Simulated scan of single mutants.
Amino acid sequence: MPITTKKYSNGEITVVWKPDTCIHSRICWTQLRQVFDPTKRPWITMEGTDTEKIIEQVRKCPSGALSYFRNEEEGGEGSTGNNVVKEAAEILNIKITPNGPILVNTDCRITHSDGTEEIKKGTTALCRCGASAKKPYCDGTHNAIGFQG
């Protein structure tokens, strides 16, 4: 099943949003409302602030639903075809969020129960409450059911 991807550019960078992987943590729009505003369409307005502030906020996305690439690097020499900037992890960083998902903060290979494999880039949010409709991934249902853990 293909993942929906939306792109927003300010000329310098392009922010990539994958709504199917978003866990609706609200970090993006509560910390940088002039760019990320879910009450508007489009909900991402790249002209709201400077490029570095947008990059800083995108890097805080706990699910990896938001990422970015620099436009001059897309398709250029040395391009990986992925075009998403990420920071290399020397040590695997896994975070158990209070009342929320397990966050795996590096590229990883997910092997599903039927044997199919999937490569996930950046941060991956895994369901911990058991109620996600997108298992093994978190879809934010923990908020609706009042998961404690």
Rank of each mutant, 00 (worst) to 15 (best):
N71W: 06
G115V: 02
E90H: 11
T30E: 10
V58C: 03
T80V: 07
V35H: 03
N105Y: 01
K40L: 12
N10E: 03
I23Q: 00
C108I: 10
E52A: 13
K40T: 05
R70N: 10
D37E: 10
F69Q: 09
E56P: 01
Q148G: 05
E47S: 15
S63W: 00
G149T: 10
S25T: 10
N99S: 12
K53V: 03
V16P: 00
N99T: 05
E87V: 08
S67P: 00
C129D: 11
I54V: 15
G78H: 09
I44E: 01
N71M: 08
T80C: 09
T21Y: 10
G76T: 11
D50C: 03
K134V: 13
K86N: 09
T123S: 08
G48W: 02
E87G: 09
R59F: 08
G146F: 09
N82Y: 12
K86A: 07
C22A: 01
G64V: 02
T39N: 08
D114R: 11
G100D: 09
I3Q: 13
E73V: 04
G122L: 07
R33L: 12
N71V: 15
I55W: 04
E77L: 14
E52H: 08
G149W: 13
T5Y: 04
K53N: 14
H112V: 01
V84A: 11
K6P: 00
T45I: 03
I44R: 04
T141M: 14
W43C: 08
R41L: 09
E72H: 14
T123Y: 02
I3W: 10
L92T: 14
F147V: 06
T97G: 07
A125D: 03
